[in-house]
Design a protein around this nucleic acid. Structure first.
Lengths: 204, 204, 204, 204
DNA sequence: AATGAATGAGGATTCATTCAT
DNA sequence: GATGAATGAATCCTCATTCAT
């Protein structure tokens, strides 16, 4: 029955990692990425510095964990939508909304999650940034839309990058300026611009 | 006449700052933001570390200067376009192209210029980021376009943010993935999407 | 009968220590003295770190055990020779050869066995270094030789120290330079020099 | 006249290094090699930790400096003897005496100077250990002696290694046991044994 | 008795900033 | 003003030892 002990160990380990996650987010929020020291994370997680190093080989690895831990839920949720039965246009609308809600919820560690280079460095190959994942998902939907004949035949890669960047940029600015848009309104603006453009005339 | 001495002092000061700018960009390029130490900047600028501190109160201020010094030319050039005689749509096309060319040219210090938190921190109030400036300029043009009747009446603020974010995001991805788009092609894609959308049907 | 339990306990204890010995030598070989951590020794010994501390008060004591465990066989083997029936000169020749073979065999943990200060520190009083033991044994033989009239009447202590140091030094250099001498040749050189010197004239 | 400033700088630098040397020897003496931390060296040298790092790139380099600074004088002095007009046998006698006096004087940092692996590691190629140098010098003299016909034709490399090891070993034991031999007596014992051996019969 | 997670003192190194010359 | 040596707080990481289970 080694399984019991194993289970227990795994459970404890995941509890510790959960504590680290919360501590790290707290520190990231309060001090920013460059102010996030192992000492502070340890203190905020309610454990000794050494214990952090029992859990993670080094700072890099700890940050990667925090990153994944924060990003994975969004990725999974959107994967559901992508694989779901909705039409392409509707899927995009839903995804844009999910992104916005996710970003607002994680405002505190925003930069870290979206575009941190420190973590990205070692991950570039695996493309696990939230942005990277988002782009791939949007590309899938754009292709679906083109196949279905509801979207023009555009450079899907470029358009996906534009959409994700725009969605992020929009929220980022709201944080920076302190103004917050209504979710519905923001999503609608994005949708209408990307679907129909802001020109007064129609594309021929 | 104290004026002469003053002039001389100012001249010397601006020459030193120019040297610092070039040294700093060199260091930023070679070592990245976190590897940019005062020692290295001093060495690359051909002056003593102490002299750096005669010129700038501290590192923060030095970085702010470098940031502004790098961003200002783009701002001025675009201001010319904004104030110029072109139609709104054409102005946007030109600006998008200018952004792209600027970003590509400054690839090395990209992150630092566009989204560095260290510098932004103390700067947020004064809105001097390249992104901030760009948004204001695009807003101006969007308003012109709406006035002229060539653009729909949209949330100019949001659309400007989306455009600038998309433009930056597009180039950023090119850096990250190592693929480079043709300028004309990239500009055209952005223009057509933002003006007409990617929907196959027309907006009613 | 408590004696049975006692026996069992002793047996278990010595089995554990044997395991520790092998693990420690492995670690010493692979990581060097400074890389020999209790964690690694525990892992290599196939037991938990805590159990190491049930066996040995601390790291120092563990290392002392390993040291003795490694040195004792040589000491015992040489004791046999010393107590044996050979003539003094022949005994020296045999012993020099045994030393050489022992050192070559234990090359990996050489420094640790021969001259480690960390272990010696607390051990100096008890004279348990391989070197110390060797010197005492050679002294015994030198005295035998003088008694038998085959050796000159020399400062036996000094000569013994010189012989052991020379034997060790010779092998040490071979390790350092990577060249290996033939056993016979090396032993012969040592013997002829120590017995007859390298002067071209004879001692009067 | 930049030369003046240069001179001054060099002078200051060498004064600092001298201070570091003395501080390091003090710490080495009191705490041993493994207890020699940069903090302690800085304190013992009367300067801040950071200043140590202005002088030496890292600990390794600092230790190498201390090592060389201590070993060089002996090497130079013996080089004089080697190149001098004495007969081979006499040169050996003088050198053995110089070694002994040097070792006694530097007792405190003995192990570090003679056989430290930490420093040797990166120096192995340049053969700058005191032992290495000594061996080379003795080899030179042995060859001279053989050429002059006063020494038998022996394996000079091996014999040199034996002599140096023996000389060091002798002193090392004196430190360990606390007994001190008379210089003349010790030198004479070494000389007679190495020149004529301790056999009662003569080499044929 | 066995385990191994938790601890925290300690060590090497960096770098913004100061200040004597 | 210019210089660059001096400073020491701050940072990442290691590892012997303890102790609750």
């Amino acid at each position: 029955m080694a399984k019991l002990a194993e289970r227990r160990k795994e459970l404890l380990d995941s509890m510790m990692k959960e504590a680290v996650y919360e501590g790290a987010v707290q520190v990231l929020t309060q001090y920013g990425l460059s102010g996030t020291t192992m000492d502070r994370v340890a203190a905020a997680s309610g454990m000794a510095k050494g214990s952090l190093y029992n859990c993670f080989r080094n700072k890099q690895q700890l940050l990667e964990f925090v990153h994944d831990r924060a990003v994975t839920p969004l990725r999974l949720a959107i994967d559901q939508v992508v694989a779901g039965p909705l039409g392409a246009a509707e899927k995009l609308r839903v995804i844009i909304r999910m992104w916005r809600e996710y970003l607002v919820e994680h405002q505190a560690v925003f930069e870290f999650l979206i575009s941190d280079q420190t973590v990205k460095q070692r991950l570039r190959a695996t493309e696990q940034t939230a942005r990277d994942t988002g782009i791939r998902q949007v590309v899938t939907i754009l292709r679906q839309g083109i196949d279905e004949g509801v979207f023009r035949s555009v450079d899907v890669q470029a358009v996906a990058e534009m959409m994700i960047s725009a969605a992020i940029g929009l929220v980022e600015r709201e944080f920076a300026t302190g103004q917050r848009r209504e979710v519905d309104e923001a999503v609608e603006t994005m949708n209408s611009v990307f679907l129909y453009g802001f020109s007064a005339e129609h594309a021929s």
